[in-house]
Nucleic acid binder design. Structure first.
Ligand SMILES: [Mn+2]
Ligand SMILES: [Mn+2]
Ligand SMILES: [Mn+2]
Ligand SMILES: [Mn+2]
Lengths: 218, 218
DNA sequence: TATATTTGTTAGATTAATCTAACTATTTAT
DNA sequence: ATAAATAGTTAGATTAATCTAACAAATATA
C-alpha cells in the first residue's frame, strides 16, 4: 500500500513524463514544491518498491508497475471530478481541489459505483481522458488553439490548465467544452486572436488563453 | 487545522464521553488500539490546542471547542453515510468504512452539497443523529430492544453497532429501520426473544442481537 | 492497613517526510 | 579547455506519530 505522499509523487511523475517518458529530479522538485534532496530520497524509496527506475544522475522513469499505479490514482481523480460535476452539480472550476483529496480514498467499490452512475465516461470535465481499470490511458492529441490558422473552425475539447481562476474566466466568456469556435484573425505580435462562437460574434482571446485551450479541427 | 490523526482522537473522545462527559486514557487507548503513552502525549498536544482539558491522572474531557470540532467530523461522517446509501445506492453495511475516510476531506462545499441533495437529513442510515452545522447533536434516547417487555409493540429506529457482519445479519432477517416489531416472548435465561414483524410471524433473536437494536415504544 | 493490580506518565527509540548546508557531478558558456 | 552555472547527492537535523521499558500514582483486594 502506498502512502498519500507516495501517491502524489507517482501522479506527478506520470503527468510530467507524459511527453518523453522521463523527468528530472529538478523538474519534479519544482512541480511538487519539495526540495531536491527530499525528492532524491523518495525516488530511492520508490526505486526499492519497483515503482521507479532510479539511478544516480539519470532521469527518472516510472516502471510499468509505477505507471499502472499512477494511472489508477489519476483515474480516481478524474472520475471524481466527473461525479462532482454530473451528479452533484458543481462547476468545472470547483472540482479539482476536492478531487485532489478524494483520489486518495481506498475503496474500489466507491469508484466503481461512481463509474457506473456516470455511465463509464471516457473524459473528465476538463476534457482529459480517464484511464481504464488497468491504469492505461489513451493518449489523445488535441491541438492548441494557438496553433490554428485564420479561418479554422474548431471544437473546444479540453483545457491544459484546470486552475479555478482560468476556468472562471472561461465561464465569464461562455467558453465551455463542445462549442464551435471560428478564428477570425490572429495578432502575430502577441499571439492573441479574434474569434467568434455561439452568440458571440467577436471576442478577443489573449495568447496565454489560446495556449491553454485544446481544440479539434473539424 | 487538525491532522487526520488528531481528528480521529477527537471523534473517539466525543463518542466515548457521550454518557458521563469524560473518558479515561485507558479506555481511549483501547478504543483506538493505540498504546497509553502515545495517547497521553497526544492528549497533552490537544490540551495545548485547547481542544481537551488535560490534567495528569484526571479523566479526559473535551473543551467546548473540542466538542464542536468533533461534532463537525461526526457530521461529515454521517452525512457521507447517508449520501452513500441514498444517492449512490450502497447498503447500510457498506458505508461505514468509506465514511471513515471521507470524514477527513476538507471542503465545506462538498458536505454542504451532500446535505442539500439529501434534503437536510436528521439521522444517518443507522439511526444516529447528524450533528448540525455548529457541531451540536441532539441527544435522542431510544430504548434497547432487550429492555422491552413481552407484548410491547415497538419501531426499530437504530442500531448501536454498525459492523458489516452485524448489519449483514440484519439484512438476512429483513430487519431494517422503521419496521414494527412485536415481542411474543422473552427467554429470561439468555435474554433471547421471540418476535414477529413484517411478513415474519415468528423469529428468534439472540440476547446479543436484542442488545444492539434500538427501538421506540409506540 | 498493607499489598497487589491497574492505570497513567516519563524517557528514549523508531519511522516517514521534510528541511538546510555542504559537497559532487554534469552541463553550459566563455 | 577551463571556468561558471546548474543539477543531484550526502549528511545531519526536525517534526509528527508511534512504540517499549521502566517507573509512579491511584484503586482494588486481602
Ligand atoms: Mn484535476
Ligand atoms: Mn493528491
Ligand atoms: Mn459510521
Ligand atoms: Mn476517521
Amino acid at each position: 500500500m502506498n502512502s498519500l505522499t507516495e501517491e502524489n509523487y507517482l501522479k506527478a511523475l506520470f503527468n510530467l513524463s507524459q511527453e518523453n517518458g522521463e523527468v528530472s529530479v529538478n523538474e519534479l522538485s519544482k512541480h511538487l514544491q519539495i526540495k531536491m534532496p527530499t525528492v532524491t530520497s523518495m525516488m530511492k524509496k520508490l526505486g526499492e518498491k519497483k515503482l521507479v527506475h532510479y539511478e544516480s544522475y539519470k532521469p527518472l522513469k516510472l516502471t510499468e508497475k509505477g505507471r499502472r499505479e499512477a494511472g489508477l490514482i489519476i483515474r480516481k481523480h478524474r472520475l471524481t471530478e466527473m461525479f462532482l460535476v454530473e451528479q452533484m452539480s458543481f462547476g468545472w472550476e470547483q472540482v479539482h481541489e476536492i478531487a485532489e483529496q478524494i483520489e486518495h480514498i481506498h475503496s474500489p467499490e466507491f469508484f466503481e459505483k461512481m463509474d457506473e452512475l456516470l455511465g463509464y465516461p471516457k473524459f473528465d470535465p476538463h476534457g482529459s481522458p480517464i484511464p481504464d481499470k488497468t491504469g492505461k490511458m489513451e493518449w489523445i492529441h488535441f491541438s492548441k488553439l494557438s496553433d490554428c490558422k485564420v479561418g479554422d473552425n474548431v471544437k473546444l475539447s479540453g483545457v491544459t490548465n484546470s486552475s479555478g481562476d482560468f476556468l472562471k474566466f472561461l465561464n465569464t466568456r461562455e467558453l465551455k467544452l463542445g462549442i464551435k469556435i471560428k478564428i477570425k484573425s490572429i495578432e502575430k505580435f502577441d499571439g492573441s486572436m479574434e474569434v467568434s462562437y455561439g452568440k458571440r460574434a467577436s471576442e478577443h482571446l489573449s495568447g496565454l488563453v489560446c495556449e491553454r485551450l485544446l481544440v479539434e479541427k473539424e
